[in-house]
């Protein structure tokens, strides 16, 4: 006979399924983002998009946003290193990715830990991006591309600008305090 705890755990699976069904989830992942994972997720999503999306334009935009979001998660994982004082080290490198399709738009949601010292900078960048028009975003992209700065990882501060351009919507985000070292960064990108 199953005890109450086991029954609860099992019904949670169905609850989780229903939640994902209700949110029209196409794919969700929680864990450490590695290059192999990135390749697999992109391959799966490309074939799913080929099935469900007729517009080539939309397909490309969703794919592009996904590439940048995944690479952000991958590169920012690298920022988290050293001895952990609060949450465990592996936990802190773990990220969340969800892609869903609603009637008239797609959503790419990401969640990842960020060092508190980097929060202000990212928030400023996102607020600035959200204030700009389509043409202004293009100008900012061009200026950032041409300013000669590039990190050792080859990232160039262009990712969020590009995500905003491809999305065509304001970037929805929040930073939730976790402990004295980390915040949790939530991003929701809508693509029409």
């Amino acid at each position: 006979m199953k005890n109450a705890q086991t029954l609860m755990a099992l019904s949670n699976i169905y609850e989780l399924y229903k939640t994902m069904e209700r949110d029209h989830t196409m794919l969700s992942f929680k864990g450490v983002v590695t290059p192999d994972l990135l390749t697999s997720v992109l391959q799966i999503m490309e074939s799913k998009l080929n099935h469900v999306e007729k517009s080539n334009k939309t397909k490309k935009k969703v794919y592009n946003v996904l590439v940048e979001c995944l690479q952000n998660l991958y590169h920012h994982n690298e920022d988290i290193h050293g001895k952990d004082e609060g949450i465990s080290f592996l936990f802190s490198k773990s990220a969340l990715l969800m892609i869903s399709k609603n009637d008239d738009h797609y959503e790419v949601k990401t969640g990842n830990y960020i060092l508190k010292e980097n929060t202000k900078n990212l928030q400023g960048k996102l607020d600035n991006i959200n204030e700009l028009s389509k043409d202004e975003l293009r100008e900012l992209y061009k200026a950032t591309l041409n300013d000669g700065k590039v990190s050792s990882k080859g990232t160039a501060g262009l990712g969020m600008i590009d995500i905003a351009r491809k999305s065509g919507n304001k970037l929805e985000y929040s930073f939730l305090p976790v402990d004295k070292k980390y915040d949790f960064f939530c991003l929701n990108v809508k693509i029409n």
Binding site: K60, V67, Q71, L145, G154, T155, A156, L158, I161, D162
Partner: peptide, 12 residues
């Protein structure tokens, strides 16, 4: 067909 933002710097 498509390039990511880190490639865009290298292409430049």
């Amino acid at each position: 067909e498509y390039f990511n933002t880190s490639s865009s710097k290298c292409i430049l």
